[in-house]
Measured scan of single mutants.
Amino acid sequence: GSLMYASIFGNVSAIIQRLYSGTARYHTQMLRVREFIRFHQIPNPLRQRLEEYFQHAWSYTNGIDMNAVLKGFPECLQADICLHLNRSLLQHCKPFRGATKGCLRALAMKFKTTHAPPGDTLVHAGDLLTALYFISRGSIEILRGDVVVAILGKNDIFGEPLNLYARPGKSNGDVRALTYCDLHKIHRDDLLEVLDMYPEFSDHFWSSLEITFNLRDTNMIPGSPGSTELEGGFSRQRKRKLSFRRRTDKDTEQPGEVSALGPGRAGAGPSSRGRPGGPWGESPSSGPSSPESSEDEGPGRSSSPLRLVPFSSPRPPGEPPGGEPLMEDCEKSSDTCNPLSGAFSGVSNIFSFWGDSRGRQYQELPRCPAPTPSLLNIPLSSPGRRPRGDVESRLDALQRQLNRLETRLSADMATVLQLLQRQMTLVPPAYSAVTTPGPGPTSTSPLLPVSPLPTLTLDSLSQVSQFMACEELPPGAPELPQEGPTRRLSLPGQLGALTSQPLHRHGSDPGS
């Protein structure tokens, strides 16, 4: 009898404990919600809404976190579960008819179910419309201010047509639940991603989709105040780019002037030289400038040598048109050559190039014969006009050509200096018209024969001689050997007369 009593008592207590286990969990969670309300000092109306929603959600799901349970299964099984949970929507909604099984599984994985109690606001006026909503159960109302403009029910759709707008718009009203509602919502990016994977279904979906109420604000059109608020930074940046392009296009129409201050000032006329910023005076940081632009901040801005204009002085008759350009485009679109090309026009420029290279940067340069637009006047290309890779490749080509020119210049200078040193070592320090008596009659020769300089066969020296023939050397430049009979510069000019005159010897006659 005691054994029977113990078994009955144990079973009854276990049954009672299981009955009250759900209630215990409910009270535990309710205590957490109330502690949250007390800690954050939530006001009474919002506090009442929180408690009511918790009670309804507990009775609806029995305190089970559906998302946590669903995430515990593998992905393939999750797709089947989501397809079952959203079967009513996918079967009865017209846009989803005719979709393949794979497309429906992908869509079912992207849908999220939302449960809303009465009085809950789903979308506020001015919120971004980031999702498309399908009503599965219940009814909602749409308000503009305090005026109800629409009441939607089961199988209705609200949001915005995503295929017509590249960016999400703003809501033009509040969406509030009238009863307990079940909503299926899919985010904008998720829907577009699935439709991109199934393009054959995309056309059918957009053609058959009928949005019951379009929440997009109709005033959000390009150029409206609301649109400016939504895309303020983007609009200002776009206007700045367009104004920069218009100014650079105007600059290219004036090829007669070359400016070292950047493309923003290349198009300024002579009357605007004294102004601080020219056409860019209202925004000094709008356009890029070269490193020399920092010198323009000092006094005497109108007389600054940074602004270059072609000189009108005539060229000498024998002067060549100019050196070879550094870039391939210089032959086609440049009416002034790079300062480095002028360094190779003569030997005198070679000796004085490194010492006063900055001073020569603004000297007169030889002109190319074609009066085409200036290379320095070409505006900086924006990322939309020329690819970045093209600019980098041009810079690399320019750097390689500069290296080759520097190597060639160093070799030419070394060769010229070597020839000058050899000339100085071969010439005796001094010569006299009267020579010392020699031991015999073989001493009648006034000077030792001097062998002429070897013929220069280097390509670089031939180019130097060509430049010497075309360029007029300055007075202080050293002379180079030329073709024809060679003669030492330090010898007297009348050596031929010395050989014809008898030598005057000093000596005593033994017979006297």
Rank of each mutant, 00 (worst) to 15 (best):
P485Y: 15
P492L: 04
S443D: 14
E392R: 11
P320V: 11
Y362I: 13
S227N: 12
S303L: 11
L409V: 08
S302C: 07
E297K: 05
S443Y: 13
T455H: 14
K250F: 13
S290F: 15
P371D: 08
G264N: 08
S382C: 13
G169M: 03
P373D: 10
E331D: 12
T248L: 12
R386T: 05
E471M: 06
S357Q: 13
F205W: 12
P429L: 11
R360F: 14
P437L: 08
L395Y: 08
G269L: 11
Y431A: 14
P317Q: 15
F351S: 05
L461G: 11
P305G: 05
G287W: 15
S208C: 09
P225R: 09
P284R: 11
F213K: 01
L178W: 02
L215S: 01
S432G: 11
A430E: 12
L365N: 13
G281V: 13
N403Y: 08
T407F: 03
V347C: 09
L402G: 04
L152T: 03
T336Y: 09
S410Y: 05
Y198F: 09
G511M: 13
A266W: 07
R367F: 12
L129T: 02
L395H: 04
G153Y: 11
L183Y: 10
P502I: 11
E295I: 10
G507N: 11
D203F: 07
R144L: 06
C470D: 12
T179A: 04
D174G: 03
G126H: 01
L261R: 09
L380W: 07
G355T: 08
P321T: 04
G287I: 15
T444Y: 14
L420Y: 13
R408E: 03
S243M: 13
M197K: 10
S445H: 08
I142D: 01
R385W: 15
R505M: 15
S357R: 09
R307F: 05
G264E: 09
G153D: 06
P168S: 05
L417K: 15
A260L: 12
F234S: 12
S451I: 07
G298K: 15
K332Y: 09
T130Y: 13
R216I: 03
S393T: 05
V391L: 04
L458C: 06
S345I: 06
G145T: 08
A266D: 14
P222Y: 08
E324G: 13
I186V: 08
A177W: 01
P454I: 04
D189G: 07
L191E: 01
R358Q: 05
E253T: 08
P478N: 10
I378A: 08
I157K: 02
R265F: 13
P325M: 12
S227V: 09
P270E: 06
E141P: 01
F467A: 07
L405T: 11
P225A: 03
E210F: 06
R386D: 11
L132Q: 01
D174S: 07
S393E: 13
H504M: 06
S224G: 09
P383R: 10
F158C: 01
S293F: 15
M468A: 08
Q423K: 08
R176C: 06
P439G: 08
S139C: 10
I151A: 10
P321V: 14
A150T: 09
P373K: 12
G267R: 08
Q423F: 08
